[in-house]
């Protein structure tokens, strides 16, 4: 069971990494127009100039 000493911190760290990534997604406004982004990926004319904010 001593392996838990490593496993628990590692799993918390990995989970935390995901959390930080999620904060970054929120901050970079990736949830502002979910419907539009879903449609845009299908259209050809955005290939040359992707979203710039």
């Amino acid at each position: 069971m001593n392996v838990l000493v490593f496993l628990i911190p590692i799993s918390l760290f990995l989970g935390g990494l995901g959390l930080v990534a999620f904060f970054w997604f929120i901050k970079s406004q990736q949830f502002d127009d979910p419907q539009g982004d879903a449609e845009r990926i299908l259209a050809k004319d955005f290939d040359d100039h992707p979203r710039s904010e």
């Binding site: 502002d32 127009d33 979910p34 419907q35 539009g36 449609e39 845009r40 299908l42 259209a43 004319d45 955005f46």
Partner: peptide, 28 residues
Amino acid sequence: HCAACISGVERTLMGQAGVKAARVNLTL
């Protein structure tokens, strides 16, 4: 309501003199 609308609106707006940037938010 669709991808064609987004590009249609953005193209129409960008085609106007004096427009620097136009972006459609489909959700809103």
